[in-house]
Amino acid sequence: MKHQVFDIPVIKVEVAQHEAEVKSCPCCGRLEQAEFPPDVTHHVQYGRRIRALVAYLHTVQRLLSARLVQLLEEWLDAPISEGSIYNIVQESAARLEELREPIQEKLLASPICTPMKRASPSKENGIGSMWPAHRKPRGCFAIPNGGGKR
C-alpha cells in the first residue's frame, strides 16, 4: 500500500549582490572600476524569473497589480511596487512584439496554414463575420494585432 502527498517546495527569493572592484593604477594613480555583468544595470532590480512570473500572473492569469504586490510580499517576501509591475509588463510586451512580425510572416508563408478569411453570409449567421472559433475551417488561424489594450 502506498500513499502520496503532493506539495510545493518552499519558495524564497535569492538575492545576488554584485560588487565591482575599484583599483588605482600604481603608475598614474588613475581609478579603474570593473564592469558589472551585462544584465545588471541598476542598483536594485528584479531577475528574469521573478520578472517572468510577474508578467505571467498579471497578463495571463489577470491578477490585479495590488493583489500581485500582496502575493509577492506574502509568499516570496519580495517587496515590489505597482509601478515596477507596470514596467515589467510593458518591457515584456515590447520584447514579445519584436517576435510577433517574424512569427506572423512564417505562419503566412507556411504551406499548411492559410489566413483566416471572412465567412460569406450564410443562413446560420447571416453576416460576413469571422468564423466562430468552434466552427473555424481546418488550417485557418487569426493573428491578433499587437499593441491593443484589454
Rank of each mutant, 00 (worst) to 15 (best):
E101K: 11
I88K: 03
A94Y: 02
A78E: 12
I80R: 08
T59E: 01
R62W: 05
A78K: 12
P111Y: 11
P111E: 07
C113A: 11
Q90N: 14
Q61Y: 06
N87Y: 00
P102A: 09
R95Y: 00
L107V: 02
I88N: 02
Y86H: 08
I85L: 11
I112K: 00
R95N: 01
C113R: 09
R62V: 06
A55W: 08
I85A: 08
L108N: 14
I80K: 08
P102E: 04
Q61H: 10
E73S: 15
Q90L: 11
Q90V: 05
I112M: 11
R95A: 14
S110G: 03
T59R: 13
A78H: 08
W75M: 14
I80L: 08
R67Y: 04
D77T: 09
L64I: 14
I103D: 00
P79S: 13
A78Q: 11
S65P: 01
L107T: 07
S84Q: 12
R100F: 03
V60A: 11
L57E: 00
V60Y: 14
S92V: 01
L57K: 01
L99H: 06
R100Y: 10
R95V: 02
L72C: 02
I88S: 07
S110A: 15
P111T: 05
I80N: 11
R67I: 07
T59N: 03
S81V: 09
S84A: 14
Y86M: 14
C113S: 04
Q90K: 00
H58Y: 06
R67M: 05
E82L: 02
E101Q: 10
Y86K: 09
A93P: 02
D77V: 06
I88Q: 00
K106G: 03
Q70V: 13
P102W: 06
E82P: 06
V69M: 05
I85H: 13
D77A: 07
L76W: 01
K106M: 04
A93G: 05
T59F: 01
L72M: 03
A78F: 07
V60E: 15
V69R: 15
E74G: 10
Q90A: 12
S81K: 08
V60G: 09
S81C: 11
I85E: 15
E98S: 02
Q104V: 07
L57S: 02
E74A: 15
A93C: 03
I103F: 02
A66F: 09
L63K: 04
Q104K: 02
E74D: 15
N87Q: 13
A93R: 11
A93H: 03
L68E: 09
S92T: 05
E97H: 05
E82I: 08
H58Q: 15
L108C: 04
I103G: 05
I112L: 02
I88A: 03
Q104A: 07
W75I: 13
A94C: 07
S65F: 06
Y86T: 15
L57W: 01
R67A: 13
V60L: 15
E82V: 09
E82Y: 04
N87S: 10
